[in-house]
């Protein structure tokens, strides 16, 4: 309980809404650029790495719920659990020292991507019939035409796109943390772990 209170200090509390806004603003910009991924969890990963796993999980959960409940993209709300898992994994990875150089961040991102594909496939298959409404549906169609059923096809689609997405996100977060002044990082519970 005490460590949880330390994780949610005032600076963390102020960082979380900023991170949520970063998720939504960048996710939307990437959507405009028509790139084959989302980059909608950079803020979540940033909080996980700087503040800890629970703060990261809360950021991910609230990002998708706010995205859905404000009516901007209701299709994102059911994936709130996936976003929470990503934030938690980012926090745990940072504690283990796996985000401390660009190549470690890259590998961590790939691993987190595979896990997030596994968590999101059942949601995508059950709630949305296995489609995303985006260009990635061509991949789902391909796996389906090979004879895969709905759940494996959505997992295969996620396993192809999510690791790249999360690897880019983790490397970007590493870049950002390196660019932050030491004095600023020291205000966060895990800020001094990454050097």
């Amino acid at each position: 309980m005490n460590s949880l209170r330390k994780e949610f200090n005032t600076t963390t509390l102020v960082l979380i809404p900023v991170a949520i806004a970063i998720n939504i603003a960048i996710g939307h910009t990437i959507y405009i650029l028509k790139l084959p991924f989302y980059l909608d969890s950079i803020g979540t990963i940033l909080v996980g790495v700087l503040a800890g796993p629970w703060a990261g999980a809360l950021t991910g959960l609230l990002s998708n719920l706010i995205w859905g409940f404000t009516g901007l993209n209701p299709a994102y709300a059911p994936f709130a659990a996936v976003a929470a898992v990503i934030g938690m994994l980012a926090g745990l990875a940072a504690q283990a020292g796996w985000v401390s150089s660009w190549w470690k961040a890259l590998i961590t991102g790939l691993v987190v991507g595979v896990i997030s594909a596994a968590v999101s496939a059942p949601i995508s298959a059950y709630v949305f019939g296995g489609v995303t409404g985006s260009g990635n549906d061509a991949l789902v169609a391909m796996f389906r035409s090979f004879g895969a059923s709905v759940l494996p096809a959505s997992f295969a689609q996620g396993a192809l796109t999510d690791p790249v997405d999360k690897a880019i996100s983790f490397v970007l977060v590493w870049l950002i943390i390196m660019a932050l002044p030491m004095r600023f990082r020291a205000r966060f519970p895990q800020g001094q772990m990454q050097t």
């Binding site: 005032t10 102020v14 960082l15 900023v18 970063i22 650029l33 950002i176």
Partner: peptide, 28 residues
């Protein structure tokens, strides 16, 4: 388009993190 990501994302995040500290002091 891929190479456009870094010059877009990094300035956005760094500029928004600048006022986190100030706001923390303000609400305290």
């Amino acid at each position: 388009r891929l190479s456009a990501i870094v010059p877009l994302v990094v300035p956005l995040i760094l500029s928004s993190l600048v006022d986190v500290e100030e706001r923390a002091l303000a609400i305290e």
